[in-house]
Design a protein around this nucleic acid. Structure first.
Lengths: 131, 131
DNA sequence: GCTTGACCTTCCAGTCACAGGAAACCCCAT
DNA sequence: ATGGGGTTTCCTGTGACTGGAAGGTCAAGC
C-alpha cells in the first residue's frame, strides 16, 4: 500500500503520515524505489492514532497508548489512568472556555452594535476587573 | 517605568512585553541607556491586551481591538462583530471538547481499571466508529 | 521512444504566542 | 572593587503539523 492509499483509508493527510514516521510512531517498510510500503498493521496503527488524536490525546499520549495497545500483558488501570488524566484536562479546558464565554457574552450583549463609538466591550477591556 | 514594573502592574511577563513590542503592538520610549521607558499609556495598552488575551482573542484580534479602542470615531458595530465572531469560535471549541469528553468519558467508565489487560478504551480506539 | 501527468521522495520554511537561556551591559550599595 | 539585580539582544525550542520547492518514478497513451 502506498502512502496515498493508506492516507485515504486512515483518514489522515499524507503529510501527517510522513511526520508520524519521522517521529517514530510508525515504521513502514520501503520498496526498492524508495517509496514507503504500508502493511495492514501500519494502517491499523494509523487509524488508532487518528482516533486518539481526534479525542484530543497528545502525540506523546498516543505513543504511550500505542505501546499499551501492543503490550498484551498491560494492566487496564494504566490505560484508564492516562485517559482519566486527559479527561480532566478536557474538563478544565471546557471550564476555562465557558468562563470566557460568560464574560464575553455579557459584554457583547451590552453593546449596541451601531454606528456610534460607545462600546461596553472596549470599556470592559480597558477598565479593570474584566477577566 | 522600567519593564519589570510595567510587567508587574500589567500582570504580564517581561518576555511577553518585549515580544509585544517586537511585533508592534506597543512602542515604548527608550532611555539614554537603552532601557525601555513605559508611559502610563503603554501600561494601559498592555493591560488592555492582557484582558483581551485572557478572553481568548488572538494577537491579531488584539491589534484590531487596540486600533478600535484608539479610534474615537469607531462604530461599536465593528467591535461587536469582532467579539461576536470570537464568541462563536469559543462556542464551537466548547462543543468540540464536549463531544470529546462524552466519548472519552464513556470509554473510561467502561474500563475496569485493574491489573487485567482487557480494556474498552483501547478496543474503542482500535476498532471503528469511535470518534 | 517520448511525453504527460499523477504519484512519490527529501528538505526547508512557516505557523502561534511565547519561554528559556546565553552573553553582555548598566546601576546602585556595600 | 565587588556583588547582585536589572536590562539588553539574539538564538533556539515548543506542538503538530502544513505548504512548497526540487527532483525521482511509474503507467498510459501516441
Amino acid at each position: 500500500m502506498n502512502i496515498k492509499d493508506v492516507a485515504r483509508r486512515a483518514g489522515l493527510p499524507a503529510k501527517t503520515i510522513r511526520y508520524y514516521e519521522e517521529i517514530g510512531l510508525i515504521r513502514p517498510l520501503r520498496q526498492a524505489n524508495g517509496y514507503r510500503s504500508f502493511r495492514d498493521s501500519d494502517l491499523h496503527k494509523l487509524s488508532f492514532i487518528g482516533r486518539a488524536r481526534s479525542l484530543g490525546f497528545s502525540i506523546e499520549d498516543c505513543r504511550t497508548l500505542l505501546a499499551l495497545y501492543e503490550d498484551k500483558g498491560r494492566a487496564s488501570a494504566d490505560v484508564k489512568a492516562l485517559a482519566g488524566t486527559h479527561l480532566e484536562r478536557i474538563s478544565a479546558k471546557i471550564a476555562e472556555l465557558e468562563a470566557m464565554r460568560r464574560t464575553l457574552s455579557g459584554l457583547v450583549d451590552a453593546c449596541a452594535g451601531d454606528e456610534r463609538p460607545d462600546c461596553p466591550i472596549l470599556t470592559g477591556l480597558g477598565g479593570p476587573g474584566c477577566a
